[in-house]
């Protein structure tokens, strides 16, 4: 094998990672469900990146009101004639919303909005979790106690309630939405990382590193965290879906920067108002959320199978 040539530690790292990767690919090939998850999540990220190219990104605040609630989908007959008089002959695959915009275009524009918030929340939660959770687990004592009690406080309120209060107080905008969801999310990561570090730090190699004269930062962030982060990353993948669910739920109940904003929960909010006259308005945005979130959940499950040896059969 190529890696057996002595090239120093750089090639050596690649050797180990490559073995992991190979095993992961092998598992993926064997498991069609996980493969579906990978396909969905990769596709949704690609769609999010390309969406400004597919749909004119400014089209969401144009309102051709003559197309309100038009439904020209030939596949499903909802037995409801167009409630409003649809002008023009354009075909809208998923119908139009009450502002006269093509629902399909709005969904395509909405995916990057939701995914961006989800990635921001999860990435920040992981960073906070690794830093404070690692510190709490490694230092123990009063540091641990203090950090734990703070997470206790945040875990004693249902996340959605705290988020509602935060958004109302901080004002309605996408950044406050992100901050509100992050505020309810980070304690779980601190807890998770802490428990991982607690079990990892008892291993003899940590003691050996201390005897070697390695400092706390090097031991904690260079060794312990690297060895215990996989469960956290699995959780992060699973949580992409959950964050999208929470964010869309918040905008769905009306805590949105603008009712026009193409965001999946926001689009559904319009839908619930017309639920018995234009059901497609809630069906398709919600279905999009379901598919994306399912994709990331399947992906997370797959990653867990790869990295949790106990689940290997």
């Amino acid at each position: 094998m190529k890696a057996s040539k002595p090239e120093g530690s750089q090639s050596s790292d690649r050797y180990g990672r490559r073995a992991d990767l190979k095993y992961a690919l092998h598992l993926l090939r064997r498991n069609p469900i996980v493969l579906t998850g990978v396909a969905i999540s990769v596709a949704s990220v690609l769609l999010a990146l390309l969406s400004p190219l597919i749909v004119n990104p400014t089209s969401w605040d144009q309102q051709p009101l003559n197309l309100r609630l038009c439904w020209n989908n030939p596949i499903v007959n909802w037995q409801i004639a167009n409630v409003f008089n649809c002008g023009g002959s354009a075909v809208y695959p998923l119908g139009t919303d009450s502002y006269g915009r093509s629902l399909l275009q709005m969904i395509i524009l909405a995916i990057p909005v939701d995914l961006e918030i989800a990635f921001e929340v999860v990435a920040s939660a992981v960073v906070i979790g690794v830093f404070f959770g690692g510190l709490a687990g490694y230092k123990g004592g009063i540091v641990d106690e203090a950090i734990l009690r703070v997470t206790d406080v945040f875990l004693a309120i249902p996340g959605i309630l705290l988020a509602i209060v935060l958004i109302v107080v901080l004002g309605r905008s996408l950044p406050t939405l992100t901050i509100a969801v992050l505020t309810t999310w980070w304690p779980y990561y601190v807890r998770l990382m802490r428990s991982q570090v607690l079990s990892e730090k008892e291993k003899p190699y940590v003691e050996r590193l201390r005897a070697m004269g390695a400092g706390g930062i090097r031991i904690l962030y260079g060794h312990i965290v690297q060895n215990s982060i996989y469960p956290v990353l699995v959780q992060a993948t699973l949580d992409i879906g959950s964050v999208i669910l929470t964010v869309s739920a918040l905008t769905f109940i009306g805590l949105t920067p603008s009712p026009l904003l193409p965001e999946l929960g926001n689009l559904s909010n319009q839908g619930i108002q017309y639920i018995f006259t234009a059901p497609w308005l809630i069906l398709f945005p919600g279905l999009t959320i379901l598919i994306i979130s399912l994709g990331f959940n399947l992906l997370g499950d797959g990653i867990r199978d790869v990295f949790d040896p106990r689940l290997r059969r």
């Binding site: 869309s248 809630i282 069906l283 919600g286 379901l290 979130s293 399947l298």
Partner: peptide, 22 residues
């Protein structure tokens, strides 16, 4: 269980309403 994890609750409720009421 995967569906339960992934489904937006508000959407599930709305779909139930559409199915049962409409």
């Amino acid at each position: 269980s995967l569906g339960g994890y992934s489904i937006p609750q508000f959407w599930f409720g709305a779909v139930l309403q559409i199915l049962f009421v409409l």
